[in-house]
Design a protein around this nucleic acid. Structure first.
Lengths: 347, 347
DNA sequence: GTTGGCACTCGTCGATTAGGAGTGCTAACC
DNA sequence: GGTTAGCACTCCTAATCGACGAGTGCCAAC
């Protein structure tokens, strides 16, 4: 798609998109002129509109209504007509303030990011906690809860903490458990779940069992990365008039269940550096056709990465959404770099 | 409220409640007789209905519509007209099967309970993970992530695991950290967050800092018990015709945010043994007046306790909801007893 | 106490209508 | 040739109207 439109057509398209996003109603030639003085008459606007419709940037809901942007129209708007402003400084300050208030915990950050994203964009937000594609073991502890019931706590290289409750065959004292973990810890350090599993057969009964469990836990942690997602602002998106409790809303709720929406979205999002926008029918998944997504990845390079974005109707304030997503992705990236990366060359 | 109704009035009330719950439409005398042969004429039913309305068990939406149960009517139904059946065995088996499939982790159980509760009741479910009102420290570990960044992992007596990222003043090697944790662990075992905090001033620089952080973390874990809640089945409840995307739905979504609904619900729920039902205006919180709640507490005695329940419109299948809530509370209780309690005298 | 009959009430649904916003076309204008 | 005013036409929206039907309440008869 080239910017083959005249300057006037671009102005008109821009105004129509903005006006439609603002009001939610199809916009007509006359009302457009009444609101914005372009120095031309409605009739001229109409002929330009006709041209824009010809090229599929606009559409008619029905013969005698105003124009509505098509997905292609939105795309052009996002690509060429949007002056991508930074988020205003006061809002930046509000956001980073909130991140400073919350406890220093990766999951808390992700949750907060979801809340802020939703509140500021007025749409549904999605945030996956940052995960590494290959987790390596760092350290584990065995803690006797009572009798044969033992809690296994594992920490990975990336600082993920996972626990699981084990039922042992026989009762084992805390001392023995501590001795075992002290013996095994150096061995399993930096290993992947496959490597740990390979160690298991060679070990004695209890040690072998623990190694198996560790491998399971590590594998599970990796898998969770695929499905775990924090979503906020459902109320906002369900308020949108084009969705409003109808069948689309039902569809969306189903997609949110168990993170199913992620598996539709992820294949289409390259882990590129900047914000990505997917509008309506550009989605490969038909279920997402009524929606637009503004998303970005974040994370410490080569370590852990996550995804965050907002989901709303194609009629969404793209400019604002993009600034917000970009800024929060940057905040999250900085937080993670402080934890993982060696280089500290940024504020 | 006494059961001062005649046998026939009770039968009619029961049928009206059931019919209304089933169809969602106000039920009239004639249609009731057509469906259920009571051996009496519509006119007789009408006069009984009039009596029931007099006593506020039923209401008229408008002069010439059928009758609808009032909150009082539902209450009478739940109290006296419901033969509280157990959940059918096949469904019991399905449920316990699902719990056996999931990883042995308290949070996973709570999440699964929420999913099952929602799916089987067809309404919104709420499950708070089991928490102790006073958490005592069991064990902690310090893990160096890089440079001055350290991960603090703490395990409480009840097996809760919490972690936080710390920024130290100076760089400290993993060996020093391990030595420190080995020295402090015996000291802080079984202490509450207040007791730990009292130790801090007496300790050296780094140890003092760690103790403060531990106290914070422990306190935070207790506080989370107040707000953390797993909710599932939002789609079900938003499908209900009496709610359907309207302002009540918005209200509900707001209440779900950050677990606000819990602070409205908890004060009214005694941690009694059996299932509790709160119907419509019986809620102290006006925001909950459109809803009915069926809830029960679960947990290992004197150790940890949680709450689970379903939330739906007052027109909800009480009998079924009660059986489901009761059964799942029992399953969760058994799971927790296996972890915590000494006595193993039940299956 | 129960029942059938009957007039009356009201909400629902479909059809009808008026109003209005917007278009597309054409002819005139600069 | 692009621009504009004028105008007929389209079609959605909201309001109105009326038929329909479910349900009630009352009364007289059983």
């Amino acid at each position: 798609m080239q910017p083959e439109l005249s300057q006037r057509q671009r102005t008109i398209l821009k105004l129509i998109v903005q006006e439609y996003i603002r009001t939610g109603r199809a916009v007509g030639s006359k009302s457009l002129i009444e609101r914005y003085d372009l120095g031309i008459s409605p009739a001229t606007v109409r002929s330009e509109m006709g041209e824009l419709e010809e090229q599929e940037y606009l559409a008619h809901p029905h013969t005698s209504a105003g124009r509505v942007p098509t997905d292609r129209g939105y795309r052009y708007y996002v690509e060429y007509l949007l002056d991508d402003a930074r988020l205003p400084i006061p809002e930046q300050i509000t956001i980073s303030h909130q991140f400073r208030q919350v406890e220093a915990q990766i999951e808390s950050w992700a949750k907060l990011a979801a809340v802020v994203l939703a509140d500021m964009s007025g749409n549904l937000s999605l945030v996956t906690p940052p995960r590494s594609s290959v987790e390596r073991m760092r350290h584990f502890e065995l803690i006797s809860l009572r009798g044969r019931v033992v809690l296994l706590v594992a920490v990975t290289q990336t600082g993920m903490v996972r626990e699981v409750i084990l039922q042992l065959q026989d009762e084992v004292s805390q001392e023995e458990l501590s001795a075992l973990s002290q013996r095994l810890n150096p061995e399993i350090r930096d290993l992947t779940h496959e490597q740990i599993r390979r160690l298991a057969p060679g070990a004695s009964g209890l040690a072998s069992f623990i190694l198996e469990q560790l491998a399971d836990l590590l594998r599970l942690t990796e898998q969770e990365a695929q499905t775990e997602v924090f979503a906020e602002g459902l109320d906002y998106v369900l308020q949108q008039p084009e969705i409003e409790g109808g069948p689309i809303a039902q569809r969306l709720l189903e997609l949110l269940r168990g993170g199913a929406i992620l598996s539709l979205l992820l294949p289409q999002l390259q882990p590129g550096d900047d914000v990505q926008v997917i509008i309506g029918k550009e989605h490969r998944a038909a279920d997402l056709h009524p929606f637009a997504v503004v998303a970005a990845s974040y994370g410490a390079r080569n370590q852990v990465a996550g995804l965050l974005g907002v989901v709303g109707p194609t009629r969404m304030p793209y400019g604002r959404s993009i600034s917000i997503v970009r800024y929060i992705a940057q905040v999250m990236t900085n937080l993670l770099r402080d934890i993982y990366d060696e280089a500290e060359d940024e504020d």
